[in-house]
């Protein structure tokens, strides 16, 4: 069975304020695959996810990133989102004065418009959000509140998951999706994420700890250290890593 590549990162080098962070990074993710990227603090995991989403402040010095065959680096953040990239953020941003419904309706309709689908009116939109929210065990009032303002850590992650469910991306990056979550919230969020797995949607799960991978079981695991992948394997690599610690792998390179 030939697989269709969704994301192809080749020899990526990037820096932030003259500091080399990513040093020759290679990774291909095919449709439907779930990859885990594990690495110690400071390895450049968040830099990678920010570059994938087009955040400013990062300079790509060489290499390329193709998404669905297109040059991803030439696209604005909103174009990437409309093409189907979604970043589930480690620290979701608070936006006082902007209700979740307003924010999400703008996002949904921008993406639907891009896909050539009719925009949803308020009734249709609210109905859809309520249905998706129910699956994630969200308090219905949450969508009336300002985006992430006064949300607990768990609520923020649930809202990220809700956004993912509603925006239906082709490729989702989960950046430290478990940080700030207690075990119950972790289960809910993981179940939400797993429900979104299908034969086509791909995911990159970036995490520090193996714990999350007990709930979201990856097809591939990569160890990321000092700006590049130092070892790749299946889900058992995560367990090995848990046992040996990162130090063992960093020395191997």
């Amino acid at each position: 069975m030939t697989k269709t590549p969704l994301l192809e990162i080749e020899d990526l080098c990037a820096r932030v304020c003259d500091k080399e962070i990513i040093k020759g990074f290679n990774l291909t993710i095919n449709e439907g695959e779930v990859h885990a990227l594990m690495g110690p603090n400071g390895a450049g995991k968040s830099t990678l996810s920010n570059i994938l989403c087009g955040k400013s402040g990062y300079e790509v010095t060489s290499g390329s990133i193709r998404f669905k065959g297109q040059d991803l680096l030439a696209m604005s953040p909103e174009e990437r989102a409309r093409e189907g990239i979604f970043l589930c953020m480690q620290y979701p941003v608070e936006i006082p004065g902007v209700p979740v419904t307003t924010f999400l309706k703008h996002a949904v309709n921008a993406i639907r418009k891009h896909r050539g689908e009719p925009e949803l009116d308020t009734m249709e939109f609210v109905k859809m959000v309520r249905e998706e929210g129910k699956k994630l065990g969200l308090d219905a009032d949450m969508i009336k509140r300002a985006v992430n303002v006064g949300f607990s850590g768990g609520e923020k992650k649930r809202l990220e998951t809700l956004q993912m469910a509603v925006l239906k991306p082709d490729f989702a990056i989960l950046d430290e999706a478990d940080s700030g979550l207690d075990i119950d919230a972790l289960k809910v969020v993981s179940e939400g994420v797993n429900a979104l797995r299908n034969g086509k949607r791909a995911m990159l799960v970036i995490t520090h700890y193996q714990r999350l991978l007990n709930y979201i079981i990856p097809d591939f695991v990569h160890v990321y250290a000092d700006g590049r992948i130092v070892k790749s394997g299946d889900k058992n690599l995560a367990l090995e890593l848990e046992e040996k610690g990162y130090a063992g792998f960093v020395r191997e390179k």
């Binding site: 087009g54 400013s56 953040p77 989102a81 979604f86 941003v93 006082p96 921008a110 925006l167």
Partner: peptide, 21 residues
């Protein structure tokens, strides 16, 4: 950036933030 990363255009994102302000 948060809003743009969800597909909202920069102009719309600015308008939403101004209205919120």
């Amino acid at each position: 950036f948060y809003m743009r990363s969800r597909g909202i255009s920069e102009e719309d994102a600015r308008q939403l933030l101004i209205a919120a302000y």
